[in-house]
């Protein structure tokens, strides 16, 4: 069982490593936003309110240890 888990995790980690390396081949991407074009000092908040509404508590029973 340990061997299967190790292989599974090993393949998943290897997948992440090679996909990060592969991503360096792609440099043409559409810009998502226009953050470079925000006028300096123009951002001003007039209203900032945080109102508490309600609270909910959930509980789950722990597994019983033998």
């Amino acid at each position: 069982m340990d061997i299967f888990i190790s292989i599974g995790l090993g393949v998943a980690i290897a997948f992440i490593i090679v996909f990060i390396q592969k991503s360096s081949l792609k440099s043409v991407v559409k810009q998502r936003a226009a953050s470079c074009y925000i006028k300096d000092g123009s951002f001003k908040l007039n209203t900032s309110t945080d109102v508490f509404l309600y609270k909910k508590t959930e509980k789950t029973e722990k597994e019983k240890k033998e």
Binding site: A34, Y37, I38, K39, S42, F43, K44, L45, N46, T47, S48, T49, D50, V51, F52, L53, Y54, K55, K56, T57, E58, K59, T60, E61, K62
Partner: peptide, 24 residues
């Protein structure tokens, strides 16, 4: 000893203001 608890507090948050853009 018996349970795990998660308490969630819900808030209504509001932010209003202005921001300017140039040369987009």
């Amino acid at each position: 000893n018996r349970y795990r608890y998660v308490e969630k507090s819900y808030y209504s948050v509001r932010r209003a203001g202005k921001i300017a853009f140039e040369h987009v």
